[in-house]
C-alpha cells in the first residue's frame, strides 16, 4: 500500500461517488472500516462517536438492505436518525426536492443519506444545503458504499486487491453497483471482467477500464471472485426485452453447482437481493463458496466508517 494510513489526511466532505475518491481515500476508508467491523463482534456492538449528530435518510426509491444497513450503522454510533421516504411520483406532483431538502436541513441536520432514481441527485443536494451528502444509490450511476463493502469483503479473502481477477456478471447497463465497483476496483489495481449478454452492456463500457466477455465458462475459469448482479425482474415485460427469457439467461449466465466443482477456487458475491435460479442456483448461493452474507455484515461496518469520517472524525 502506498498510503501511510497513520498520517493520512482525509479531506472529503461528501461521498457522492467513488469517481471523486482517490485510491488512497478508498484504502483509508477500508482501513477504518476494519475497526468498526471488530466493534460489530463485541457483546455490546456500539460506540458513541455520532451521538451529537443528526442524520436523515432520504429514500426516494425502495430499499431494504441498504436502508437498514445505514440505519443500523447510525444507531450503533449513537446518532439521532430520522427517515424520510417518498414515492417519486408524489413528490413530482408536490414539493420539489430542493424545497424538501432545504426544509429538512433547516431542522439542523448534519448528514443526509440519499437514494434516488435520478443520477446526479446527491450532487444536486450539495448545491442546496451544507450537510454532508452520502450517496446510497443514484439511478444507474453510483452506489459507493456498496462498492466499498464489496471491496472490504474481497479484502478479507485477498488483502491485496492489486492484480486480483474480479468478474462481474449480469445486468451491467442498469447497475449502479457495477459502476462504483469498476471505479473502485480499477483504482486499487484489480483486473475486472464484466460478463453478460451484449444487450445488457452500455456503449463504450471498455473505456471504464474493463474487459468484456460474453462467455461465462471462460470468465469463471479466469476469476478469483465472481460477483453476480441482480437481474431486474421488474424491468421484464416493460418496453423492449433485452434478452429472450430468464430461462435462457440462466442457461448462459447463471452460476451453477457444476461450475463450483469445475473451478474450485473462485468465491461468489452478490449485492442482493438474489433471484435464486436466475443469477445462480440456490445451492450455489448457500454453498461455502458464497460470501454473500459476509457482504451484508461488512456493509454495516463500512457505512459506520464512512459516516464517522464524513462527520468530521479523521481516524479511529
Amino acid at each position: 500500500m502506498s498510503v501511510d494510513l497513520e498520517k493520512y489526511n482525509f479531506t472529503q466532505k461528501h461521498l457522492l461517488g467513488l469517481a471523486d475518491y482517490s485510491a488512497d481515500d478508498i484504502r483509508f476508508v477500508l482501513e477504518q472500516a476494519k475497526y468498526f467491523r471488530e466493534i460489530l463482534d463485541r457483546p455490546v456492538p456500539k460506540v458513541p462517536t455520532l451521538r451529537d449528530k443528526t442524520i436523515v435518510n432520504l429514500f426516494y426509491e425502495n430499499s431494504t438492505r441498504t436502508r437498514l444497513s445505514f440505519e443500523l450503522a447510525q444507531k450503533r454510533m449513537g446518532a439521532d436518525v430520522v427517515n424520510f421516504s417518498a414515492s417519486t411520483s408524489s413528490t413530482k406532483k408536490g414539493e420539489s426536492l430542493k424545497d424538501t431538502i432545504q426544509n429538512i436541513s433547516s431542522m439542523k441536520i448534519d448528514m443526509v443519506v440519499v437514494r434516488h432514481e435520478s443520477p446526479g441527485v446527491p450532487h444536486f443536494l450539495t448545491q442546496c444545503v451544507d450537510a454532508a451528502i452520502l450517496n446510497a444509490g443514484d439511478g444507474a450511476h453510483e452506489h459507493p458504499t456498496q462498492a466499498l463493502l464489496d471491496m472490504f469483503t474481497m479484502q478479507q479473502i485477498h488483502p491485496e486487491l492489486k492484480g486480483k481477477k474480479i468478474a462481474i456478471i449480469g445486468d451491467i447497463a442498469y447497475s449502479r453497483v457495477v459502476r462504483s465497483n469498476i471505479i473502485g476496483l480499477t483504482k486499487l489495481g484489480a483486473e475486472v471482467v464484466i460478463c453478460g449478454p451484449k444487450t445488457l452492456m452500455p456503449v463504450f463500457v471498455e473505456d471504464l477500464g474493463v474487459t468484456v466477455s460474453h462467455n461465462l465458462e471462460e470468465t469463471l475459469a479466469w476469476c478469483d471472485i465472481a460477483m453476480a448482479l441482480r437481474i431486474q425482474l421488474e424491468r421484464q415485460g416493460k418496453g423492449t426485452e433485452l434478452f429472450p427469457s430468464l430461462r435462457e439467461y440462466h442457461e448462459r449466465f447463471g452460476i451453477k453447482l457444476s461450475h463450483l466443482e469445475k473451478y474450485p477456487d473462485f468465491k461468489i458475491m452478490h449485492p442482493g437481493p438474489i433471484n435464486r435460479g436466475v443469477e445462480m442456483e440456490s445451492e450455489v448461493a448457500d454453498s461455502d463458496r458464497a460470501i454473500i452474507l459476509n457482504q451484508v455484515t461488512n456493509g454495516v461496518a463500512v457505512r459506520m466508517a464512512v459516516l464517522y469520517l464524513l462527520s468530521g472524525g479523521n481516524r479511529v
Binding site: 452500455p202 456503449v203 473505456d207
Partner: peptide, 23 residues
C-alpha cells in the same frame, strides 16, 4: 423507439454517469 427515455447523448459520458442515452 431508439431514443426514449434518453436524457443525454448516448456515449462514453452517459455510460459513466448511468444516464439513459439518446443515440
Amino acid at each position: 423507439a431508439l431514443s426514449r427515455p434518453g436524457h443525454m447523448n448516448e456515449g462514453r459520458v452517459s455510460t459513466r454517469l448511468g444516464l439513459d442515452g439518446t443515440p
